[in-house]
Simulated assay, not measured.
Amino acid sequence: MSQKKQKQSYTEEFRREAVRRADQKGNTNASVAGELGISAQQIYNWRRQFNRLTDKQFSSINGVQFKTTDSAELKRLKQELADLKEENEFLKKAAAYFAKNQE
């Protein structure tokens, strides 16, 4: 019967430190991985994940830099503005209709 290997989870601090150490002059992914008892591929994967996160932490809208949290709020506010404009147009039409019927 084969045993399943339990997946080891590492803290973000551990992962960042491993990537930082591998990036230092004189170190390689393989040497740091050997010291830490992990595979070199894992350090490559963590580096790619951190770079991907960093790229998505900021976005630019009309030349202005926004954090991701700001972008989410901006999206919500744009939707709210669109909803209010639609409601305003409906109310204008309803007011015109009732004004026309009162004459």
Rank of each mutant, 00 (worst) to 15 (best):
R15W: 00
R15S: 05
R15P: 02
R15L: 02
R16M: 09
R16V: 04
R16I: 06
E17Q: 12
E17P: 03
E17S: 10
E17A: 12
E17Y: 02
A18W: 01
A18I: 06
A18F: 00
A18T: 04
A18H: 04
V19R: 03
V19A: 01
R20V: 00
R20C: 00
R20W: 06
R20M: 07
R21N: 09
A22H: 01
A22L: 01
A22E: 02
A22N: 00
A22M: 03
A22Q: 00
A22C: 00
D23P: 02
D23V: 00
D23N: 14
D23M: 12
Q24I: 06
Q24H: 02
Q24F: 05
Q24G: 08
Q24V: 01
Q24P: 01
K25W: 09
K25C: 03
K25N: 00
G26Q: 04
G26I: 09
G26R: 05
N27D: 03
T28R: 04
T28M: 02
T28Q: 08
T28D: 03
N29L: 07
N29P: 03
N29T: 05
N29F: 10
S31T: 15
S31Q: 09
V32H: 06
V32P: 09
V32F: 03
V32R: 07
A33H: 02
A33G: 12
A33I: 10
G34R: 11
G34T: 05
G34W: 07
E35Q: 12
E35K: 01
L36F: 13
L36N: 07
G37L: 13
G37P: 11
I38C: 05
I38R: 04
I38L: 09
I38A: 10
I38N: 01
I38S: 04
S39C: 11
S39L: 10
S39P: 11
S39N: 15
A40Q: 15
Q41S: 13
Q41M: 14
Q41E: 09
Q42N: 12
Q42V: 06
Q42F: 08
Q42E: 09
I43Y: 05
I43N: 14
I43W: 13
Y44N: 14
N45K: 13
N45H: 13
N45A: 14
N45T: 12
N45M: 12
W46M: 12
W46C: 14
W46Q: 14
W46S: 10
